[in-house]
Design a protein around this nucleic acid. Structure first.
Lengths: 208, 208
DNA sequence: TAGCTTACAATACAAACGTATAGAGTGCTG
DNA sequence: CAGCACTCTATACGTTTGTATTGTAAGCTA
């Protein structure tokens, strides 16, 4: 798969990418249309031409990220690609800026990100309910698990600094992934999924 | 201990509290001096008189929260007050706005919050190193544990929504606390601390 | 080729914002 | 009582920001 260079993209896509990066780094309010335009190498007017208002630009970023995440979850988990190297490779190349944006959007108050959070909680809750422990508070467990997972994304700057390695570099992702598996009770996640995740990590580690 | 009503505070304290609340809810950039002044019931000029610039106001909030957290950690953990009801009661009454601010500050890029994160990682790492498993990546584990804990604070809005209960109400805090204990391997935290936390939670539950 | 749509830039403008400045009221101190 | 310090308000100023408007060039279509 050829790597897509930023210059080959249409101006609209470049604007969207620049907006995602700036929204993620500084937040929506601190990001200016002029700043986005400069980062994308276009005039401020063009940003307006393609996206109308700043709010619509943010919505476009939301929709882009959300459709991406949904697609990756589908092709990754539902289609059982979690251990395929090309899938992992592709995710690690394309995901970081999107995850960066998603993390910030969760804090900045994007409706789309909130909806995605709820979706993830529901999926997790359903998964946990299959383990037959009807007395357990599956809702709370699913919520905490989701928040912990996403919390690492939201705090990735601090995680990277504490680790001395960028979380989005393979090394950092590997260390964090393993630490997460060390931390969580296997029976909580379900043995099957737990082993699958561990196998994926180890295969990924062997590849480098 | 008498409850401190907001009107009894000095104007300076009211401004600081209002700023913390707005910074936490909207972020620093989206918060205006005029907004802080209105929320505190004073003129915008007074904000400037007491704190100079917006940046200095943010630093004052940082210092206030940080000294509070450090104090609570000291009197709570070091002095072994974790199970005393009046300590817990006091924390649950005074902590929420401060934690709310801290969570936002971590994302908004406050140097003080970053320093606090690093401190917590170091304390946790030291704790983990006492368990003799020299081959384990204690640094990564401490980082992930810290990020997960704080991640729940940062995402508390979403956690509360998914739970249907405010995380900062006793009910919500209880459900989340128990779910966290269910999720984490006890031997990871150290049996002693784990049991201490569980005992504190159960005593807290009994009190209501 | 005439006409229309699309992609882009440049300029303009009103609102919001941080902050500087001036001044009023009050209490303390000599 | 004079003078100073402190708290607080009101106003003003320059900048930044989102966005509206206008203009230009290129490509498509009939």
């Amino acid at each position: 798969m050829r790597p897509i260079s930023e210059e080959d993209l249409t101006a609209r896509a470049r604007i969207r990418d620049a907006a995602m990066a700036l929204f993620a780094e500084r937040g929506v309010k601190a990001t200016t249309i002029r700043g986005v335009a400069e980062a994308a190498g276009v005039s401020p007017g063009l940003v307006q031409h393609h996206f109308g208002t700043k709010e619509e630009l943010r919505q476009a970023c939301d929709e882009y990220v959300l459709s991406y995440v949904r697609e990756q979850v589908t092709t990754g988990i539902t289609d059982h690609n979690l251990e395929k190297p090309e899938y992992i490779e592709n995710v690690y190349r394309s995901a970081p800026p999107l995850m960066h944006y998603l993390g910030r959007a969760l804090v900045d108050g994007s409706p789309g990100a909130a909806a995605m959070f709820d979706e993830l909680v529901n999926v997790t809750e359903q998964h946990l309910s299959h383990e037959d422990r009807p007395e357990a508070d599956h809702r709370a467990r699913a919520t905490v698990l989701t928040a912990m997972k996403l919390g690492i994304t939201v705090l990735h700057e601090h995680v990277s600094r504490a680790l001395g390695t960028d979380l989005y570099e393979p090394q950092g992702a590997l260390r964090v992934g393993k630490a997460q598996l060390d931390l969580i009770r296997p029976e909580f996640l379900g043995r099957e999924l737990f082993e699958q995740a561990r196998a994926g990590l180890e295969k990924f580690e062997g590849d480098r």
